[in-house]
Every structure is written in structure tokens, then in C-alpha cells.
Design a protein around this nucleic acid. Structure first.
Lengths: 179, 179
DNA sequence: ATACATTGAGACATAGATGTTTCAATAGAG
DNA sequence: CTCTATTGAAACATCTATGTCTCAATGTAT
């Protein structure tokens, strides 16, 4: 049975999110394959990390394109982003601060573009009267990514069902934890 | 001039928060000392990481004790925690997921105790009608820590003044980013 | 100025991870 | 069944970080 690179990446993401220094051995084990096979798929650790970054950025691009197109119902600016919150939860730990990613100008530019688009979307939310205007859109974008991260960790630890995560993010993001 | 261990720890925290696998060399450089001196202060990498965890847990304990005592003004349950948000921002990355910390039952128990106390405090907030009751207190505690992390990162990147961070956390936590 | 303590720089062996290669076992296609 | 492709296991050299040590330079107290 030919090993699917995408499945390996999906298995590697939570491992590397918990410990960015996880060994190739540990990553292979979590994917249920041998280190040799992992090496054939991704000859270098850099290759693996960069492939993961590309996947995450692709997923973010998809969600952003979805959100940017969705102009009809005013309140739905964030719906697409919240529905596809996972890649945004992984952005910070696995893309922004990863030297193997930042070292490549190509990936670095994409990462920056994704964040800028997220900020722009938040600005649109502000302009539409959906989001508060007493804070820079940068803060709101970071807040969204942070909330996504929190929700993702809660699901990984089994404290939250993955179906509940989008509602959680929306609720806290729009109304907070106040009564 | 005798090197102060506490100052070294303070310098090491942001470095290790950004990259938990940062080398002793990099940590020493960020603290402005040589690797030899760093080794004299913390003979082992484990020693450094554990000392950092102890410091963070101590700071959390202090803030928690403060918050638990503060029973007079109902709305102020979270004031002490928000005022001392930094250690809570560092809890996840530098304490909870760090093998060198979790390996020591002593530190592991302390870490768990800190989170439980945070959850209990959120429950009190719920009982007082300050926080929403349609979510488990566990989620709210994680939300608080996540917001603290977001605020801390925004300050580290220069996007937010450190004075603004507590207000940001309070505002988002209680009222969200909605208009 | 002298004596002591602390630091910085460097050498050294060791451990762990990585990248490379080989080879036998196994799964699937024909 | 046979052949081919893919996998898993293992050995290997290499590299980096760590931990240990020595020694010269610096700073401080007396």
C-alpha cells in the first residue's frame, strides 16, 4: 500500500505543534510508518516542515478566499474563517516562528500575506459594524488566531468536541466570556 | 559583577517561548553572558528549564493567591489575574508541554494545581454572574491563558504596549471583539 | 598593590538526530 | 504464480548540542 504523503502530514502536525523539536523517528511513529519511509517521502527535515507549512498556508488561503467572497450576509464575514479554523490555529507555532520556513523568502512572504489578508478581513468586519473599532485590526486578527489555537488544543486534549469548536470561537470572539 | 540568575531566567523565557529547542548558546547570548557562565548557573539544560518552570509557577501562585483573596468587589475576581497575566501566558508553552517539567512529578503536580485553581476561579466568576455559564469553566480558563498568550506575543512583537495588555485581555475576555 | 572570585574563550569527549545506503520481507499488478 | 514496487529494519558516517574541563582576562574587596 503506497503511503499517502498528505496523511503523514496530517499526523505530523499535532506532533510538531506540541513539540517543534520532535525527532523524525517520533513523527514516523505517530504516522504509523518507519523512519525509512518517512525519509523517502521527505528526504530532509526541512522538506517535511516546509511541506507542512505549504499545506497550512494552502488551507488558510482557501478559507480566506471563501470568506472574502462571502459578501451577502453581513454577519457572515467570519463564518468561513471560523468553520475552517484549524489552519489558523497552526499558523503561529508551525509557520511564523519556524526558521526552516522563514528562511525561505517564498514561504515567508506567503505567511505574511495570509496574516495581512486576515487583518484586512477584520477591518472589513470593523467597517461593517460587526467588530469593535477601538482596537487595531492587528489585535483582532491575533485574537482570532489565538482563539483558534485555544479551541484546537482543547479538542486535542479531549476537553472539547471538534463540532463545538467553531461555535466556541464565534461566541467568545463576538461576545466574550462575560455573562 | 556577579551574574544574577533571575535576570538570566527573565531573558531566557522569551527566547524559549519562541523556540523551545533554542540552544544554550543562543540563550546565553540573549542574556548577554557566555555559555560557560550559563552552565555555571544551570549545570544542565534540565536545570534551566525546571528553574524557569518554578519561576513561572511561583508567579502564577502569587497572582492566584491575590485573586482568591480579593473577595470584596464582585467584578474584580479576575483583576489580579489580568494584572499579572504574563506567567499565565507562559504556562502552556514552557510548563505544560515541556517533557523536562512533566517528567518531574513535583513540578507536574504544581502545574496541574495551578490550572485547577484557575478553573475554580472561573467557576467563582460564573457563580457570581460575571462569566457565562453555558461553557465549562475549563474552556474559560484556557481562553484566559490563550488571551494572555496572544497579548504577550503582541507586546513582544511591538504591536501592543505592555500597559495596554491588561485592558486588552479584560475587554476581550468580558465583552469579546464584537462591536 | 595584592589576593581572590568571577567571567569569557576555547578544547574535548559524548550523546542524539540526521541523512545515506543496503537488504530482506511484503503487498499488488499482471 | 511471478514479477515489480514499496516498505521496514539495520548499519554507517556526520553533525550539532551538551556537559566537562582548563586557562587567561577581568573585576572586586582588602
Amino acid at each position: 500500500m503506497r503511503t499517502d504523503a498528505t496523511e503523514v502530514l496530517d499526523a505530523a502536525i499535532p506532533v510538531l505543534a506540541k513539540d517543534r523539536g520532535a525527532s523524525m523517528q517520533a513523527i514516523a511513529a505517530s504516522a504509523g510508518i518507519s523512519r525509512a519511509t518517512l525519509t523517502r517521502l521527505f528526504p530532509t527535515r526541512q522538506n517535511l516542515v516546509q511541506a507542512m507549512a505549504v499545506k497550512i498556508l494552502d488551507d488558510c488561503d482557501r478559507a480566506l478566499a471563501h470568506a472574502e467572497k462571502d459578501t451577502s450576509p453581513i454577519e457572515q464575514v467570519l463564518t468561513a474563517m471560523v468553520a475552517d479554523y484549524r489552519p489558523f490555529a497552526q499558523l503561529w507555532n508551525l509557520v511564523y516562528v519556524e526558521p526552516d520556513v522563514l528562511g525561505v523568502p517564498d514561504a515567508s512572504d506567503r505567511a505574511e500575506a495570509v496574516f495581512r489578508r486576515t487583518v484586512t478581513l477584520m477591518q472589513r468586519g470593523q467597517d461593517l459594524g460587526l467588530l469593535r473599532k477601538d482596537m487595531p485590526a492587528t489585535w483582532l486578527a491575533s485574537t482570532f488566531c489565538g482563539l483558534a489555537e485555544t479551541a484546537w488544543e482543547l479538542t486535542l486534549e479531549g476537553h472539547m468536541g471538534s463540532r463545538q469548536a467553531p461555535d466556541f470561537i464565534t461566541a467568545i470572539l463576538l461576545h466574550g466570556a462575560g455573562a
